[in-house]
Design a protein around this nucleic acid. Sequence first.
DNA 1: AACCAGATTATAATTATTATCGTTTTATAA
DNA 2: TTATAAAACGATAATAATTATAATCTGGTT
Lengths: 147, 147
Amino acid sequence: MDFLTRIEELRELCREEGIPLTQQRIEIYKVLLASREHPSPEIIYRKLKSDFPTLSLATVYNNLEVLSRLGIVRKLNPLSDHARYDGDLSSHTHFVCVKCKAVEDIESEKIDSIQIPDPPENGRKILGKTIQFVGICEKCQNEKQEE
Amino acid sequence: MDFLTRIEELRELCREEGIPLTQQRIEIYKVLLASREHPSPEIIYRKLKSDFPTLSLATVYNNLEVLSRLGIVRKLNPLSDHARYDGDLSSHTHFVCVKCKAVEDIESEKIDSIQIPDPPENGRKILGKTIQFVGICEKCQNEKQEE
DNA sequence: AACCAGATTATAATTATTATCGTTTTATAA
DNA sequence: TTATAAAACGATAATAATTATAATCTGGTT
C-alpha cells in the first residue's frame, strides 16, 4: 500500500472514530511511514521540530498512542518502561498483556516445536530468538466486561 | 536443572569471572528462580526487603545485569526504557541490538514463511505475534574490535 | 590477619513518560 | 462564512524508572 493511500486510510479512520485529523497527526504518521529505523517519540519529534517549531513532544507521544489504537502503527515493545527478567532459560514463549503488563508463559507443544532458523548474520551476532504474543490477559478481559 | 544445582552454577561462574559471590547476588537469583511472574527489579526488591532490610534497590538492578551477563538470567525486553514504533504492519521479523538498541528488519523468506499457530486462548485475547532476534549489530561488533 | 577489587548502601541526578490546564483547531451545521 | 462544541495542542510540571556517585563494607586470596 502506498504512501498517499495510507494517509487516506488515516483520514477515513479518523472520520469513523469521530476524532479530528490534525496537521500534527498527519505529519507524525508521515515520518513514521518514511522511516526505516523504528523510531522513538523523541526521534520523530526532532525530525519534525525544524519544520514545525511549535510542535510539542507530548503531542508526539499522544499521537503515537492514537495511531496504535487505530491499528495503523505498531508499538514494538509493550513492556517499555519496565525492565523484566526471567530465570527460565529453556526455550519457551511469552504472552504479554498490553494493559497490565503481566507476562505469562505459553504452554504449547505445537509452538515449542517450531524451528526458527537463524537469519543471515550480515555482520551481526545473534544471541537469542523468541516468539512473543501480545494481547489482553484473562483478568483484564474480565474487568472490561464489568464496565 | 534443580535449584541447588543452579546456585552451584552461579558459584562456579563467579569464580570463573573472578567476581565475588555475595549474599545479595544469591538471594536475588533465588527469588527469580522461584518466581513465575517474570518480575521487575522493583518486585524482587520488595520481596527481599523484609528479610534483608538494608538491601538497596540499586543492588537489585546491578545484580540483574550481572546475572544477565553471566547468561543465567534473561532480560525479556531489550528495548525497555525507550518506546519504539513501526509503521510497517506487514508480518516481519525484528533484530534488536542489545548495545545500541537499534532495531533492524530481518529479510528472510524462510523465517517469513513460518506459520505460528495461536496458542490456546485460556480467556486471553491474542492481538499479535512476533518473532524477535536479539544480538549485537554490525556497527557495535566493529566498534568492539577496535578496543 | 591483611589486602584489594569489586560490591553494597544511601541518596542524588537523570531520563522517559504522563498529567495538567489554558489556548487553539477541527468538524459540523446553521 | 461563522458559530459552536469536542477534542487536540503546546508549555510545562509531575511522576516514575533507572543510573550515577561517593563513602563504606565484603569476599576471596595471599
